[in-house]
Computed example of a mutant assay.
Amino acid sequence: MTAPASPGGGSVRPEVALAFAVVGYVALAIFGLGMTSLVTNQEVISVPGLGQLPGIVGMTLSTAAFAGGLWAAVRRPHPSFWGVPGAMLGAFLGYLVGIWGAAVIGGTDLAAATAAMGMLATSWFGLVVLAAALVCAWSGIALVRTRAGRPRWPWERDDE
């Protein structure tokens, strides 16, 4: 039995590709931030007194922006890989704005919140967020574009 084709011509529906890509993005970004912190011996947010809330809000907004950017790309009849930069930029800016906003709302002064955002934007941590978004957006679009089917055992094939 053959799986129904998605509107984009591939065998993976855009909603499913979006779900896989978003879950992959969150996992890869959190892993990447943690490993970068371990390797560089730095905290992701090194401004004292900010706590955990800015990181949580930043990752949440980053994920929402990534999902929105990727959804705009994969819902088209024939998605283009030119949607990748939009998803990357959304994820990166969502992360920075979320950290800055949560720090300000949490009672941190503007200078400390801006310093935290600036350090993330110009460090390896910002690059990790961009790289995770690149890999996952590309993968999500590729899932919709390709005509790959599910793996089959030799006796399941129709060629015999």
Rank of each mutant, 00 (worst) to 15 (best):
V104K: 06
P85R: 02
M119A: 13
G86T: 05
L89D: 12
A116M: 12
V97G: 06
S123V: 10
T122S: 15
G118F: 01
G94W: 03
I99T: 06
A103E: 00
T122I: 15
V97D: 02
I105V: 15
T122K: 14
G98C: 07
T108C: 11
A116C: 13
W100P: 01
A87N: 11
W100R: 09
P85T: 05
A102G: 03
A115K: 12
A102K: 01
L120S: 08
G101Y: 03
L93M: 13
L120A: 11
T108G: 10
L120Q: 09
A111K: 15
L96H: 02
A87V: 14
T114L: 12
G94D: 05
P85I: 02
A91V: 07
V104C: 07
G106P: 04
W100E: 04
G90K: 07
I99Q: 01
G101V: 08
G98A: 08
G86M: 06
A103C: 03
S123L: 09
A121S: 08
W100H: 10
A91Q: 01
A111Y: 13
A111E: 15
S123C: 12
M88V: 15
A115N: 13
I105E: 07
A112I: 10
G107N: 05
I99W: 00
A91N: 07
G94F: 03
L89I: 15
L96K: 02
A115S: 14
G107S: 04
T122M: 15
D109G: 14
G101S: 14
M119F: 11
A116L: 11
A116I: 09
G86L: 06
D109C: 12
D109H: 13
A121F: 05
L96M: 11
G106L: 09
G98Q: 01
I105K: 08
A121W: 02
G90T: 12
T108Q: 09
Y95K: 08
G86I: 04
A115H: 13
V97K: 03
G90Y: 02
L110G: 14
A103R: 00
M117Q: 07
I99C: 02
G118P: 00
D109N: 15
F92V: 10
A103M: 05
G86C: 05
T114M: 10
A112D: 12
A91F: 05
A103F: 01
T114S: 14
M117I: 10
G86S: 07
G86N: 05
L110S: 15
G118L: 00
A115T: 14
F92I: 11
G94C: 11
A112W: 09
Y95P: 04
G118I: 02
G101W: 00
L89C: 14
A103V: 02
I99L: 08
L93F: 11
V104H: 05
G107R: 03
G98R: 01
G107W: 00
M117N: 06
A102C: 04
A112H: 12
M119Q: 13
A115R: 12
T114G: 09
S123D: 10
L96G: 00
G98V: 00
A111R: 15
G101H: 00
G94S: 11
G107D: 04
T122E: 14
L89M: 15
P85D: 06
